[in-house]
Amino acid sequence: MNIYLPIAEMSANIFVFLGMGGAVGFLSGMFGVGGGFLMTPLLIFSGIPPAVAVGTEAAQIVASSASGAIAQYRRKNVDIKMGVILLVGGIMGSMVGVQVVKILRAQGQFELLVSIVYVVFLGLIGSLMLIESLNTMRKAKAGKQVSARRPGQHSWIHGLPYKIRFHRSKLYISAVPPLLIGILVGFMSAIMGVGGGFIIVPAMIYLLRMPTSVVVGTSLFQVVFVTAATTILHAITNMNVDIVLALLLMAGGVIGAQFGAVAGEKLKGEQLRFLLAGLVLLVGVRMGWDLFIPPEELYSLSGIAGGGH
């Protein structure tokens, strides 16, 4: 059964994209990640123009993270003050990112940027997770206590101005680092079609030293609003949000996530991280493949954006 995608301007099999949404939803439910970093490459591999993949995926992440954000908010796991600062930065970063997409798309270099950024980030994060999960597994085997985070340590972050008291996070730190992290995440969200949880969660834990209890809720809060802003900005600037495609992915995604969450409960944290690291590296390698392997066809064809009516 086929459906015509109005923005991608192609006829697509409904079940392919429902299945894709379901599979990524399953994985994101299992690992507790947003799944944008898997979905955007998959969309590109399946022939969706990279810019449309990025814009559409932003809309889908709004759907997949909205219910989680509300649940966390109800459990009072959101540091609203921190979230708002991250969000302000996020929207600023997203505005820049959307313009970058526009400029590079006109020059035919957007696909290159997406590939490089994905290869670098997925390679980096995948390797770090792999090492960390292997270390944890080895320590657990040796019977050692796995060390938790050490609060109260002072770092260069405490020397920065504009200090604000974050009651919920029990922190008194400068507003500059959260704002900068927000900008980075917003920028990544706009050019990669991701929520940015994979940047913001480690940043909150290791840089800002927020308590783990509020990290997930606050990051979800920021992800929902930043991807919502990114969706609207993409729609205005690049006209690359395909609602029909997004709805297909959402429908598959929400169902897949339910089953994934059940499957995830049966695995240990470090085992999950090990598997996720493998998956992340695999997608990174596949992204890099097209970049480094000599292509069969050196030429590519594109219509002038906005030339249609």
């Binding site: 759907a63 949000v241 709805l247």
Partner: peptide, 11 residues
Amino acid sequence: LAVALAAAAGI
């Protein structure tokens, strides 16, 4: 519209 649909679908 895209954001509203997405939010409504997720919730």
